[in-house]
Design a protein around this nucleic acid. Structure first.
Lengths: 345, 345
DNA sequence: TCATATATGGTGCACGAGCACAAGCTTGAT
DNA sequence: ATCAAGCTTGTGCTCGTGCACCATATATGA
């Protein structure tokens, strides 16, 4: 059947142990022998059997550490669900997953959480803050043999193994496209952004703008407000924006503060004529889609993100082989009322 | 750590062999002993270790048979890609997958393909024709210990293990919702259906209608034509429909014939004012979305369908446990130009 | 009473990889 | 010549499950 260590041993005239030492770079093998073994393995197209490896590796029961932001955040609850799914699938392989959550976006805090994990874990799954100190930490972890996978958001200039998440720029492009479709290509819109310190949010806005410039001259941006994921602030800022721009007929909500923005629109009596496009499908957003005030929302498949990140971590842990790509992109799904709410409700 | 056969053996005072006989219903065990063992296993929450099982089961190298319709169909090429992904993941567990494709929707032909598989396979993955003879065949396969998984389309009144695919009714509902959003809730539309003999197509139309009735009184259906997945027929029928209904401003394409319908619309000079909603994202459809004539298309995640079906087959083969649910539903994704085409193109 | 059939339970090996330990070999120093 | 040290390689056990084969114990018949 398929090629095993035993077969390689026979064909290269050495014992299983020697082949094992060569293939796992454990040294203590004569260079010539090693070369011969490597050659045979190469020619036969050897790849280690997952089941066998898992069984042997089981007793070590590797620990994967996960650090997520925003405790109690509905979006990341879905990510956690995906992580738990993957954990259940991998339990038989001895894998354990430990999750830590943090509030806010403070690099020092994140650094401290990483250090608490540092000498217990075999892999780190991180929703990284885009800060140079975090990037450096990822580098030093790599030196110690602990690879990091960036989850949900990427980090610049780091040696993370790969990124698992959505393409934020593309999500902004799609948002622009759907807004154009919904308004017949003519709208005076405002943007409610999350925090500028989040890489993804800026990328969304960039994507929106580039498509707008290239294809939809009838879309005109009137204002941009920062909501900082805070509903009260979002409400007040939106009220102010609507007062300043009575001709506004569309809003692009980049991240948090959905509830605040929508409430402001309703209170101002603009519910009917306003076209709102937002992101994700946390309960608050679904409620607003159901009510019809949000026309479309673009979702990132959080469950799949969590699942895939753990799977990719496992793949690397088991095989030691670099992933095929350093970016695993999950699709941006457009959802409307009929996608989210059952008809008989 | 986790609970193994050995541990159960110790706790119930018998040997590993006996526990194995009980858990795999292989007989030759005293009823009282069996009962005791079962109880201990139950209490400890035993579930067999996948890696161990796979290693043992490997030499038998189970064969999964797959039967798909429509040779050379772009949609099913994606399903096949998903199947191949899963196969690669499971190769180390000894799993092999063999795929057969057929043309058309002839039950006799499908029956014959199944019979060619019958005494070689451990599992059947089938895109079933909704016919009583197929349902009966699924029943007799089950008797012989070969479970069937319905893929992409379900089959009524059969004993298939489970269904993996999309919710067609829901996809019709979403199609109606997006059409209403794109037309401001007012449109005179026509339907181009695939084949009425396909269960999924009827369900899509039913979903469309039920949402229309419940929510969008401004949508008015003028005509319905059958395209039978044939572009030439679709072209001619569409031309006829457009002649008969000069006030038509939207078309709902349920299945095949996309190219024919779109060509007819272009030739008739209605490209500008027409709102077309279709399904799937095969190359022809993508081309029309790029051109802007199709505004939105609702996709079934064919790759995920193929992947998941094989995984579910494996899960059942390994564990013998009934799946958690008998319907594994993959989401219907709305895609627009920006989802499908890169901005810099 | 003994031989034989039947019911029941135990033991050992296989699967593939990892790893600890032992064994063989060469080299150099005394 | 003898022994130690180091380099290189082989062997045997582990992980959890499945299954063939063997070992008891009890029952049945002559």
């Amino acid at each position: 059947m398929s090629v095993t260590i035993k077969k390689i041993a026979e064909l290269s005239g050495v014992s299983r142990g020697t082949v094992d030492r060569v293939l796992n770079n454990r040294g203590n093998v004569h260079p010539e022998t090693a070369e011969r073994v490597r050659k045979v393995a190469q020619q036969l197209g050897y790849s280690p059997n997952l089941a066998g490896k898992a069984l042997a590796v089981r007793k070590k029961s590797p620990l994967f550490g996960v650090i997520l932001p925003s405790e109690g955040n509905a979006f990341f609850d879905d990510v956690i669900a995906g992580i738990r799914n993957a954990e259940a699938e991998l339990r038989d392989f001895g894998v354990r997953v430990e999750i830590r959550t943090m509030r806010g976006f403070d690099p020092t805090r994140q650094l401290k959480l990483i250090e608490e994990f540092e000498d217990r874990i075999s892999m780190l799954l991180l929703v990284p803050i885009n800060d140079v100190r975090i990037a450096e930490k990822i580098g030093s972890l790599k030196e110690k043999g602990i690879p990091t996978i960036a989850l949900n958001t990427d980090i610049e200039n780091s040696s993370r193994l790969c990124y698992v998440g959505s393409d934020y720029k593309k999500s902004g492009e799609i948002a622009c496209g759907i807004m154009a479709l919904l308004t017949g290509g003519r709208a005076n819109f405002g943007i409610a952004t999350g925090s500028f310190r989040m890489l993804g949010h800026s990328q969304r806005i960039a994507g929106f703008h580039s498509v707008m410039k290239a294809r939809y001259p009838g879309l005109k941006m009137l204002d941009i407000i920062e909501t900082n994921d805070d509903d009260i602030q979002a409400y007040e800022e939106t009220c102010r924006m609507l007062r300043n721009h009575p001709d506004m007929d569309a809003i692009f909500i980049v991240a948090g503060g959905v509830y605040g923005v929508c409430r402001a629109v309703i209170r101002s009596g603009y519910e009917e004529r306003m076209t709102i496009v937002s992101f994700d499908d946390i309960p608050t957003t679904v409620e607003m889609v159901e009510r019809g005030i949000i026309k479309a929302t673009i979702c990132q498949q959080p469950v799949a993100q969590g699942y895939l990140a753990v799977r990719k971590a496992f793949d690397y842990y088991i095989s030691g082989a670099e992933p095929e790509t350093d970016r695993f992109i999950l699709g941006n799904e457009i959802k409307i009322r009929e996608s989210l709410v059952d008809i008989d409700k």
